[in-house]
Design a binder for these strands. Sequence first.
RNA 1: GGAGAUAUAGCUCAGUUGGUCAGAGCGUACGGUUCACAUCCGUAAGGUCGUGGGUUCGAGCCCCUCUAUCUCCACCA
Length: 873
Amino acid sequence: MSKQLEKQYDPKMVEDRIYQTWLDGKYFHAEVQPDKKPYTIVIPPPNITGQLHMGHALDNTLQDILIRFRRMQGFDTLWLPGTDHASIATGAIIVEAMRKDGITKEDIGRDNFLERAWDWKKQYGGRIITQLKKLGSSCDWDRERFTLDEGCSKAVREVFVKLYEKGLIYRGERIINWCTHCKTSISDAEVEYEEHDGNFWHLRYPFADGTGSIEIATTRPETIPGDTAIAVHPDDERYKHLVGKTVIIPVIGREIPIVSDSYAKMDKGTGAVKITPAHDPNDFEVGLRCSLPVLNVMTDDGFMNEKAGKYAGMSLMECRKAIVKDMEDAGALIKVEPTKHEVGSCYRCHTVVEPRVSKQWFVKMEPLAKPAIKVVKDGEVKFVPDRFSKTYYNWMENIRDWCISRQLWWGHRIPAWYCADCGEITVSREDPTECAHCRSKNIKQDEDTLDTWFSSALWPFSTLGWPENTAELQHYYPTNTLVTGYDIIFFWVARMIFSACENMGKPPFDTVLIHGLVRDAQGRKMSKSLGNGIDPLEIIDKYGADALRFTLATGNSPGNDMRFSDEKIESSRNFANKLWNAARFILMNLDDDEPAPALPEALADEDKWIVTLYNDVVKGVTENLEKFELGMAVQKLYDFIWDIFCDWYIEIAKIRLQNDDESKNQVKAVLVYVMSNTLKLLHPFMPFITEEIWQTLPHNGDSIMISDWPVYDEKLNFTAEVEKMNSIMDAIRAVRNRRAEMNVVPSKKAHVYIATAKPEIFGESGVFFKRLASASDVSVADSFEIENSVSIVTADARIYIPMGDLVDFAAECKRLEKELEATLKKLAQINGKLSNEGFLAKAPAQVIEGQKLEKEKLDEKVKMLEESIAKLK
RNA sequence: GGAGAUAUAGCUCAGUUGGUCAGAGCGUACGGUUCACAUCCGUAAGGUCGUGGGUUCGAGCCCCUCUAUCUCCACCA
């Protein structure tokens, strides 16, 4: 006995220590190796405001699995980590902290505010990085980046200027989504729609000339003060003659025209619709076509402004109520019709979003979307699973211009200067000192910053040094796999793709691996408001990072949501413990000077069997990982380790371990070989425990994480021995089954008589039956005549166990007849197939052969069953 | 209004190009102090793979219908 392990695996004693050795060994660090094939992943940068949640845990587990796999396979791997400055979220935290001190951001000004934000970043921004390390993430921390660091900022500036110069970025007055809480514009993607109860208020607007009135309906009466027209469809016979007339807005008293525009649908409502160009995207378009004035009646923070007359100062909701009441009092309200409609809200703070006209910066999307669609259509970028490419097309093909300016301070300030003298805009890579148009020194920089996603869109190349043509950029770009949830395809994935196509001329990655959401045990989304979130750090603390990773990697397929439950994490923890104990057993039987893992020249049948199955696992797991079928890979490992290696091979190995000859060394070598290589296959999934065990076993090299990935070996394919072991195992299972049915305790041993026509299978199998089937002794022959015995029939043998009084002949007979019936049924099915001409003509030869073999076995079994029954009678 | 997903054992879910595919974990029942592990071992019970059709020699797997649940997208007064 050389080394000892604790009886139970304790992750706490292992994980931090192991992680430190990896850091010390610089195993995560990548240096450009031009002769090696690169494999690169850039991390989806978590917000600096973030705390590790299950979504991060899943996302990063998957990335770490892929990176560790490729690293072991010999790729020059780079997993590039970093964080996102999260303009809105971080800004909100700073504002909130100041509010507690009674200060507003306006009080302290831009520079002081930014100083606070950087301080906050310095103090808390690395929190999530520490948490990612607890998970085992093998990121190259030497290359950690931040979307607001110097290099990323330079890339942002370069892209902005380039796109501006190409006319793909412009400034304009458009309808944008305005969050009255964050007090900033947000992009279309940042608006979430929720169904709300609402009303249609039907209103009567009288003609200015007093000849009557026209009826309209609205869901947002508070926008009435901003109405500048009524629109009707050009072909609408009901209203044709009214176009050009004017109406008086009730209560407000302002006179507005009736215009003709095909936006008004004849079959919708009354066919006449009020037009509020400042507060509705469609109305804005109508306004442009009909040259209508734009009347903005709201303030930045969700109140009515002075243009709303008597309603000025009211919140939007107060105004809505007041107007409805005033309309009713004025007799203008015809009816109120309850309805449900989709209301947009801010994805950050869930405040209702107000569409409003505002001067903002936009990215012209159509020219950028085209190549971005093409690279996916052409297969240069693949979504896994493929169905998400449809989601992508759908969005890209209907995309509108991207509003990128934000009325926030924390972020990349827009590099545009306005000239007070000539009114022109100067956009440049270096901060200008004068107007590029009139050379006036009287210029001022735009106060706004860019959408956070503008900088994350450049992440795959800005982090590699672009716009400089660095060695890293040349070697590691394009990256390989992007791993992310389906919920940020629009925010991020799509924008990275078009940004890369535009700026790099190449897509940013070849594969997008999409995963689903981690839900709670009841299938609910984990959320702060529900309080049902499960903290990954608590799970790691209680069960270990390996168990968490295993749980997240197993039992689900790409793109689908999964549930997280105590049962699953416990099952993973148990698996880790099982592995630990298998190692513990092997170690107990090793000597101090045990040689490094290698297969011995001479192998017993059972060694050939386990080695063949192990070899199959190498092949399967490697293929699965290459195809991103992580769940299947991990399932194969679980089954092999627990059901095959532990439950059968180790038990069988115990036989020879008790010997004191060469066969003992043989089995020890096989145990070490299969164990340590299987650990390698499992390492990407459970990095800590596999490292700990691997280090304890005889090994070559400094760490399992930089060891060579096992390769399928065609020589290790011992089909005959596998067949033989399968027959023996079938027989052992059958004996156990019979004993259990008869309630015979394992301690009660019995002589097992094996009658078989295949002594080459069972001749030497006695030791197995003694060890695994409670046999006191085993006899093998052509046939036996045993009194008072139970009979067991397998495909290759008829087994008798004398059980004396326990044997109930009537029951025995019944049981055998039942089995005969089942076997005959199976046989009939196969005979049906084999007599089907279509099957014989069209099925592949391999399938037909398989069926014929099966038929032979069943024929044999039927014969033996019939004989056994006859004897009993 | 479009688009997509899911429906397989009591529960949670796997099932790769149609041919050992009817599976796993948990749960349940029965039995177990064999010197790795009770976070364990052995054995068992259970599902006409949502419905109805079709293609095929052969269909959880491919095609169509329907039903149920979920999700995303969309400017509908």
